[in-house]
Structures are given as C-alpha cells and as structure tokens.
Design a protein around this nucleic acid. Structure first.
Lengths: 232, 232
DNA sequence: GTCTATAGTGGGATAGAC
DNA sequence: GTCTATCCCACTATAGAC
C-alpha cells in the first residue's frame, strides 16, 4: 500500500512505513539527547510513539539502528555543506578548515550519540566500522569529497603525494573527530582552536614538497603511505 | 579472615578473596579467548568456577572489570619488558621500536579482548578512558616510561620539542595500537611492517630539529603542541 | 504491508538472607 | 563470601487485526 504525497512543487512518493520510521527516529533522538542512549529503553521509545514494542522493532531491528540513521543523515547534511564551502573558495586551507568545521557542526549537540557511535566504530566486526560494514560506503564517499576538494583547489604539491591526500585528509578529519569526542572543554572549543592552529601548518608542509630538495624526506614517506593506504 | 601463604623464600600474605578473584580471572580469560567476550555469559563463568552468579559479582562488579584486570597485568609485563629494552641499547630508534613491539606483544593472542577494551576506552565517561578513570594512572605511567626512554637515550634534538616527546610518543604508540586493532592481515603483519617503516622516519625528523633553519616550522609547531599537551 | 497484543528467552546486574 | 531469588531490559516469536 503506497501513499502518494505531494510536497511543494516536487512530487514524491512516500510509503507509510517511511513516515512512521521517520517519526520514530525523531522521537528516539529526542529521548537519547534528553535521557542518554543507555538510559533510554526500547519500551520508552515505543510508548512515547504510542506504538507497540513489536511495531518499533518492525521499523528498527535494534537500538543502534536508530543512531546509524543519524549517522547517515548527518553525512547527507555534511555533503551538502561541503558544496557551499567549495563554491566559496578554491583555497585548500580554507576548504579543509571549512569541511572539518562542517563535519563537526553535523555532530553538534549530539556528542553522546557520537560517543556511542565511536564505541561501535572501533570494533572492526561491527557494522559501524568505517572499513567493514554499512559505514564503508560513507567512508568512501567522504574520501571522494576530499578528492573533489583537492582537485578543484589551488593546491600545488609533489605529484606522488597528491594522490594520497584524499585518504590522508580523511584520516586527519577522523582524528579531529576523535579529539572532539574526548574534548571536555566548553563547547569543545579546544578542538576548534587546535584545528585552526594545526591545519595551516599541515597545508604548509604539503606545499613544501614542491621543493626538489625535499626528496630525501619524501622518498621513504611515499613508501610508508603506500603501506598505509595502498599502492597508487 | 586472612590466610597466610608462603611462596618460595618470599613471605606474602594473601586474602582468600585475592585467591578466588585470581582464579575467577584466569577462568574468565580462558573462556573469553576461546568463545569470545560477548559470547561468554556471566553464568558461564560462574558455573565454570563452580560458584554462584552472585558470588562472582562479589569479586568483579561487572564483566568489563575482568578485562580491566587484564589491562593492568598487561601493563605490568610491558613495563618489565621496557627495562630490558633500555638495558640493551641507548639508540632512540631501537628503543622506540622495542617499546612499541613490547606493548603489542602483551596484547598478542588477545586481540578480541583489546577490541572490547578500546570500545570502552573511546568513551570519555568510561572508567577505561585513558584520561578519566582508572586508566589515567596507566597513561601517566606509560608517559613516564617514554620520558625515561628519552632521557637516557642518544637522542639530540631541539630542547623545546624534547619536553613534548614523552606525550607525543605515547600518542604514537596509542595510534599504532589502534592500527593493530583494525589490522586484519595475518598476525597483524601489516602493522609491524608499518611501524618498522614509519618509526625511523619520525626519529629522523625529530633529529632534524637541531638544524637552526628548522625554526620556521618549529615555531608554530610548538604552539600547537602546547595546545595539544599543555604548557611546558 | 503495518501494527497490536502477548508471551517468552537470555543475560547483565542487584538485594538480602545466611 | 557465598547463596538464592529476582529485576530489568534488549530482543524474538507468533498469531492475528486491518
């Protein structure tokens, strides 16, 4: 049974299930943010949605699935935000800063959710591992965003290194997210400051690689990168 | 009630509780390694120890507490191994390699345990967070080991940077442990190779800082380190 | 295809008697 | 220190209403 639904101008078909699961998702997130993930029971959520427990499980196979959806959606808004960053400037430093800021913004106010997310993400067997399961796709898309960011930018650097940069920037961003998760300072200000400080230095180092002299450092480095990321 | 217990030469007093909890620990670890952490139930463990469930909880407040003990013990043997590394050579590169190898060796054969450990460690509120709870002490001790490693070594580098190295090496080691957790290659060979490759380069870069010219890079870097680690 | 109602399992954790 | 009994909750199963 399908319900035709018209939303301003754009014609979209939305199943009843999609409507309900969206409702459940929103109610769940509200509860998680208020009471905490562990403190919220599936019965709480079902009751709040005035739905039976079984029906809730019909829409979400388990509690974590709800925050998987959050991760999905946060990625979508991140991707969207990147587009405007790229439209704004070709400067690689500003772009990289903008992209990381955009990513953290998608997590703002949901730090506990992200902690739960990271908890599973460090487990290589979990579906939330950036290398293994459902999240692999997001990782690849994020690397692609980094690639796009670099290609259309003003960045000039040693050619060989350049091919590794998308993955390297992805790792850098992941590191900053981890830093943010641990950052207990007010509104994670420490993380923001740190990123502002560190990013220009990284970019500067990368630009330095154009100087031929840098070959002594660059040679072994490239072999290391190959081990880390894979051959190019 | 105390039980006097004599062990070859050295007189030691051991409470009944200590004996039991040690027994429980060993039985538990055996089960974890065989069946996996999540697959092993507290009831399994209690039954294997021929103890009631409640009695088990008297000795360990929860399932994770058992692997906390593993972490404690693994640290002790790590510390011991470091002493012989330091006795062997003053060369900083060999020392750093030796220390990290020693650390990974303490985790060998218990990768799943370490995954569970990391899972909790990324949660800043968990007692297993390296910054917050019980593990804070181990982090500080590990940083001290790094400090000892540097001070009695042949490493010469820029003075200011030197004060940050203990924490930096600790982070480096933690990173390599995380890499190892994710490394699905045979016996985590990839991690080993990567460390062998990367470590000499890092040491080389650090040595370069003696060259006065390097000030342009070093100036901002030190400010960044201060934000990362704290003022010196 | 969506949901209710209900019953049940398994397992982490706890209370309180002994 | 150890026990028994119990709680709570994630999750499953199923039968059937609409």
């Amino acid at each position: 049974m399908w319900y035709k639904h018209y939303m301003n101008e754009t014609k979209t078909t939305v199943s009843k299930s999609q409507v309900t699961s969206r409702r459940l998702y929103e109610i769940s997130m509200a509860h998680f943010l208020e009471k905490g993930f562990d403190q919220t029971t599936m019965r709480d959520l079902a009751a709040a949605a005035e739905l039976s427990l079984g029906a809730f499980y019909y829409h979400f196979p388990n509690k974590e699935a709800v925050i998987q959806r959050f991760y999905q959606q946060s990625f979508d808004s991140f991707k969207y935000a990147c587009d405007s960053v790229f439209a704004e400037t070709e400067n690689i430093e500003k772009r990289l800063l903008g992209v990381i800021e955009a990513r953290l913004k998608t997590f703002e106010g949901s730090r506990e959710i992200l902690i739960v997310l990271s908890r599973s993400a460090v487990d290589p067997r979990s579906p939330l591992s950036p290398f293994g399961g459902d999240q692999k796709e997001i990782r690849e898309k994020t690397v692609s965003i980094m690639r796009e960011m670099i290609e259309s930018s003003d960045l000039k650097c040693e050619k060989g290194l350049r091919t590794y940069l998308p993955e390297l920037f992805w790792m850098y961003m992941m590191g900053m997210i981890l830093f943010w998760v641990f950052d207990e300072s007010n509104n994670q200000k420490k993380t923001r400051d740190f990123i502002q400080q560190l990013t220009p230095q990284i970019v500067r180092l990368i630009r330095y690689t154009r100087i031929p002299l840098s070959g002594t450092v660059l040679g072994p480095l490239k072999k290391t990168l190959e081990m880390l990321i894979g051959p190019r």
